[in-house]
């Protein structure tokens, strides 16, 4: 029977699906008896999703895009001056 500490150590590989069957079984056995670890697993997973969705919203502002285009164009016409 594994404890919470071992459970959290295995979480990464469990979510990746890279644990062997025996370890997966004992981890799931722990989950059945330990609701806090289920909550932990779920919130660990959604942490990644929430952060990814938020940080991926970064867009190149139009002004930056235009400035970059200008620099790249100048660079192509006169390489080495920027």
């Amino acid at each position: 029977m594994i404890c919470c500490k071992e459970c959290l150590d295995l979480l990464y590989d469990y979510i990746e699906g890279s644990l062997d069957q025996e370890t997966t079984d004992s981890l799931e056995e722990h989950f059945q008896e330990c609701p806090p670890c289920i909550s932990f697993m779920k919130t660990y997973k959604s942490t990644t999703t929430i952060c990814r969705d938020t940080l991926n919203q970064v867009q190149v502002p139009d002004a930056v895009r235009e400035a970059l285009l200008k620099v790249l164009k100048e660079n192509k016409e006169h390489p080495g001056e920027n």
Partner: peptide, 24 residues
């Protein structure tokens, strides 16, 4: 995370994973 001597989690863990959508 912190654990007691028997390896159990010490703090109370809440499941807020279902409540993130409206706030996202």
């Amino acid at each position: 995370p912190s654990f007691n001597g028997a390896g159990f989690q010490q703090e109370k863990i809440q499941d807020w994973s279902e409540n993130t959508e409206s706030l996202l």
